[in-house]
Each structure stands twice: as structure tokens, then as C-alpha cells.
Design a protein around this nucleic acid. Sequence first.
DNA 1: AATGAATGAGTATTCATTCAT
DNA 2: GATGAATGAATACTCATTCAT
Lengths: 192, 192, 192, 192
Amino acid sequence: MLDTKDKILMAACDIYLDQGTKGMSMRKVASKAGITPTAIYRHFDSKETLHQQVLIDGFRAFGSYLYPALKGETPLERLHLAAEAFFRFATEQARYYELLFLTMEATDEINVDKILKREARSSYEFMIERVRECIDSGAFSDDDPEEIAMLLLSVCNGFFGLYVSKKFEGDSADMKKKYDRAYQRILKGLLA
Amino acid sequence: MLDTKDKILMAACDIYLDQGTKGMSMRKVASKAGITPTAIYRHFDSKETLHQQVLIDGFRAFGSYLYPALKGETPLERLHLAAEAFFRFATEQARYYELLFLTMEATDEINVDKILKREARSSYEFMIERVRECIDSGAFSDDDPEEIAMLLLSVCNGFFGLYVSKKFEGDSADMKKKYDRAYQRILKGLLA
Amino acid sequence: MLDTKDKILMAACDIYLDQGTKGMSMRKVASKAGITPTAIYRHFDSKETLHQQVLIDGFRAFGSYLYPALKGETPLERLHLAAEAFFRFATEQARYYELLFLTMEATDEINVDKILKREARSSYEFMIERVRECIDSGAFSDDDPEEIAMLLLSVCNGFFGLYVSKKFEGDSADMKKKYDRAYQRILKGLLA
Amino acid sequence: MLDTKDKILMAACDIYLDQGTKGMSMRKVASKAGITPTAIYRHFDSKETLHQQVLIDGFRAFGSYLYPALKGETPLERLHLAAEAFFRFATEQARYYELLFLTMEATDEINVDKILKREARSSYEFMIERVRECIDSGAFSDDDPEEIAMLLLSVCNGFFGLYVSKKFEGDSADMKKKYDRAYQRILKGLLA
DNA sequence: AATGAATGAGTATTCATTCAT
DNA sequence: GATGAATGAATACTCATTCAT
């Protein structure tokens, strides 16, 4: 059985994703976790701490999707697998994706935990690395790897952002096709 | 002189743009508008209604940036001007941009005002139209105009989303250069 | 009938005096005043504001006991009447006395209202003035008026302090006799 | 090495003296003592019990200042030494003084520990005794020793009360001069 | 068209305390 | 002799909203 700390984390995550940052309250979390609001404070110093732990867990979950992309045999294949990982994470862990990438709160406020920053940074750098090796191997024309990585991330975030805010429709299979086509279109502009 | 309704709207807008969705409260709006919280209810049924009116105004402001792109003489130039308009709106009216495009509240919930929906839709369709004429004129290779428009929007939202959440740095001039290069990279994949 | 603001003030005063500074809570005040905690905030900005208003009212009530001492025809008589006023205020408005003079919270914290400071200061200066005229008229031997006033205040506060904390017993009549004797003993050391 | 009970008492005392009655909480005490809040209950039944033990210790500390006054060779000298002891205790152990003499919580409530009562009473009686011998020896004019003792205590409490609540200023040396003069003035009225 | 008064639900957090271990 | 987990009640204060005027 889950220990209380995990129950709290899960409840917090659910509520964040269900009702947004603003809808998350200690009371609601406690109620969803089946405990008293007070009891949360045994496990987390403050709401802020809890919030950050949720984000940290989220980035780690994301990492577990993203990093296996290294199994690809060529730079292009690894980039492709990373793109796939994005899609799978965004659809399978939609709420986490939303929380991590689509919630527009600055992730570098003074009080943001160092661990959190590190986790966030490292998945970003993973993408830069994937792009860099595509360039270095000659698959991509010469360009700034960070900017390309940013472009790819932008597309993903923008794409899923539109999806999440229901600005257009379609089921997951449809989605995947659109996603793949979008990826191909971007790629076309990048290939050497 | 402004009538009370306008004063309320302006105050609400200021606060939204200043303190975000979360910081907006009827009290603060009333106080900024120089009236009683109660008085707002003469003019708006609820906070929700007021919120939506702010969004409608926001889309109209966006329109005033976007639609002049029609002055361009060729489809490609018009698309280019539209891209510029996005950038200017996102930087000059950053909070509005955020409110309209980056706040992940579904814009198609049952209780969303029809006018709001129409405004949101029309700027989306404007972009589709710009893409369509690029394709029809042979500037772009044959493709689905809606998907391309979506791709462009994705890039914009993703790009500014990263900017807003401070996931990377740089001043406005830097930003513009990055934005232009991103636009060129995408374009490269789309041109016939 | 009392308006709500007065009801709140009275309730606050009662509770302060009944349960001490530490026992005073907005909830309790509201409950005693027969209203909702929230409703207090219509009339007072914060607990602090309410607290200070209670003190200000207290000092004013004290003034209404003290200042009529000016009716005395000689300096000594006026001093005597002031001493009497202290006694009457301390016994008739025991709780106010306690709150104003025996609650050991610094009355000069940064956030203390100017009005409050002024009220507190003016009753202190009234006593200095009474002493000064006793000295100037030759009734008292030459000495520092402020220090003498302080001595008199000290005795009063100390005296009623012991009374309040039940460190000795006796009814009000008994009390008065002791008070008078204490006053005479002090006087003996001060007279020219 | 200190046993836990002593560590708790010292921590409690520190906090009382540092943050006042209001700031003392079991959590803070436990944290300062390096144990769990729960552990306190092994040693003290309740916060109240702990509080009273702190007071008992305080009265004992006070005694250690006061009782050496017996070393004086004449009644007047012993009284004088007692007055000095008051001053030193009030300034050197200001927070204790405050806690013992200026906190207006009745010291004779039903639930007050007998030991505490006894300790409090005995220092009071010490003063009565000092006064009595001044009268018996003819140094003071004939009067009620208890009332005189009370007068002296009143002056002390009143004096330091004004000092603590910052109702007037001055450093410790200044203070001492004022205190001495006040003592002399009182004495003048009491001497035979 | 607007106000003053009030409400009830909710906010994060702290408190003394209990219980099982 | 001490801990980890939890509780229920309390803290000051904010919110959107309603109602009588």
C-alpha cells in the first residue's frame, strides 16, 4: 500500500492538473488523500515544498520517457525517438505534461528548489545534445543546436497546448498523425 | 468620459495583465475602478462574465495587430506580416498574449461566451487563410492549410511560452532575432 | 441601539480584558458581537487596527476621569484629585485600566498608531504638569517633575498590578484605604 | 550532562524569555531542546505544568538575588540591599522579571501549583520582614509592614513595568540613577 | 446606479495533544 | 524514554456574492 507521503503527492498532482495551480489547496489535497490538512505538514514543510516535489517527480517521470531515446543507433533516429517520447509522455501522462510544460509559471523564481531547476534543465539539455549530434554528423545543416532544440520544444508545447486547450479536435490516433506530419515538416527545413 | 462599465473593464484588464489570472479579484478591480465591489454586479453578472469580456477585448486587440497584415502585397508577404504581428503583440502586449494564448483554460467549455469563441476562431481562421493563399499561389508546396497554420501557431505559442516561463533568457532584440530565424527555418520546410 | 462597530469594540474590549491579549481572536470577538468574523473587516482593517482602536478608546475614557482633576483649586488639590481619578478609573473601569497600564506590550512599536501614541502621551504629561505646579508653588520640594510623575504612576501601576494579579486580597473599600495611605506615604517624602 | 527534563526546562525558559508568553509553543520548546514535541509529555503533563515549572525556577532565581540581602548589617542596609537586588534582577534577568512580576496572570488560580504559590509568597514575605525590622528597630516610623512592603513592590513593579513597555527611555545607568532617586524619595517619607 | 453591511466558504498555517509503536 | 503519524480546533485573513436600501 502507498504510504501517506505518496498519497499526498498523487492527490496534489491530480488536483493541480484538474483545477490548475490556482485550484490546488492544502485542504483539497488532504481531502483527496483521505487525511487531515494538518497531516500534510508532517510530510511537507509548506504548500510550496509540496508543489515543487510534484514538479520534481514530474520531471523524473518525463526523463524516464525521454532518456531511452539514446537507444537509437543514429543521431536522427535518436532525435526521432525523443520526439516520439514527447508524444507518448504528452498523451500518456497528459496531466504531468501540462503541469511541467504548459503551466505558465516561471520556473526560475528565487525560491525554486535547486533540484527542480536541475531536473528541468537536464531534459532541455538532452534535446540540445540530440540536435547537436544531428548537426555534427552532417544530417542537419549547420545551425545553432540550442535554437533548433528550442524550436522543436516550441512546436511540441504549442502543439499540445492547442490540444489541451481544446482549440482543435481529434482523437489520439489523429493526433499522432498530425504530430508526425508536423515533425516531418520541421525536419524538412532542417535537413542538410 | 468613460462610463463605469469601461472603467471596470480597464481595471480588470490592468489587474489581469499585472497580476495574472490568479491575482484578479473583484475587490481589487473595484478598488482600481474607484467603485464598490458590489457595483461591479450592476454591469457584469459574475466574475466569469467579466473575465470573458476581458478576453473578448483581448482578442480584439490582437485583431488590431493581426489584420493589418492584409496590407502585404503577396501571400508570402502577408504571412510574414502576420508573423511580425504575432511577435509585436506577444512582446508589446505580453500579458494579453499570455492571457489569450498561454493560459491553459479550455476556450470551448459550455459556459464560454459565443462572442468570445467567435473572436478566438476568427484569428485562427485568418492564419489558415494566409497559409492557404501561400499554397494556392504556389509559394508553398501543396499541404493541409489548417495543419500548417496550426504548426505556425504552435511555434509561436511554444516560443513565447518558453519566453514567459523564463525557460531561457535574452532581451527583446535577441528575442526578435531568434524568432525570425525560427520563422525562416519553418518556412524553409514549407516553401515549394 | 449600538451600531455594529461599537458592538465589535465592546466585544474586543471584553475579551482582551477577560482573556488577555493572547486570548483575543477575531473569531471570538465576532462571536461575542453576534456577527461573522468576516464582518469585522468591514469596520476594521485588521486585528491590529481593532486592537489599537480599543486602546485609543481606553485612553479617552481614562482622560474623562483624569482631566476633571483640573477643577481643584490648588496644585496639591489637583494632584489629589488626579490620584483619586486613577483609583476610580482603576476600580470602575478595571479592565480598561489593566489593558492600558498593566499589559506589558511596548506602546511604541513602529506600527503603533499616532493617535494612540498621542493619547498615551497626553495623560502622562498631564501628571507631569500636576507635579510641576506642586513644585513651582512651593508645595513640593524642588525636584524633577517628570521623575516624580513617573514615581506616582509607578506606584499606581504597581499597586493595581498586585491587586489584579490577586497577589493580595481585600474589597474595594479596603483597597481605597490602602491606596490613600500609600498616597500619603509617598506625599510625605515629597512635600517641602 | 543535562537530562532531558532540564533541557526542556531551559529551552522553555529561553523561549519564554525570548518571545514572551505568547511566543512559547511546545513545538518550539521541543525543537530548541533537540527532541520531539511528543517527548515533552514524558516529562510534563501539559504546557501549563511546564509553564509553572518555569515560573518556579524563576522565583528561585529571584531568591538567589534577593536573599543575600541578609548579609547587610542593619535593617536599613538589608532593605537597601534588597532594593538593589530587585534592580539587578530586573535588569540582568529582565525577561524573568517580566515573566514573574509583570505578566498579569493571577497567581492564585485553582490550578496553580502549590509550590509555585509558596515560592511567590516567600519572596513577598521576605520583603515584609525587611520592612518590619526597619520599623521595629526604629529606623522607620511606626506603620503597617505589609502595606509598606506592598508599596515598595508596587514602585518596583510600576517602575520596571514602565521601563519594559518602553513608556520612557534611557540606558541602564540612567535607569539606575532614576531608580535610586525613586527609592530615596520613598524612603524619605518612611524614615522616622 | 451604487453603497454599506454582511455572509459562508475557503486560504495557509500553527497549536496542544493523543496514540500506537 | 522517545518517535512518527495524525487529529481537531484554532489562527488571521480573502473571496465572490447577496441583500436591503
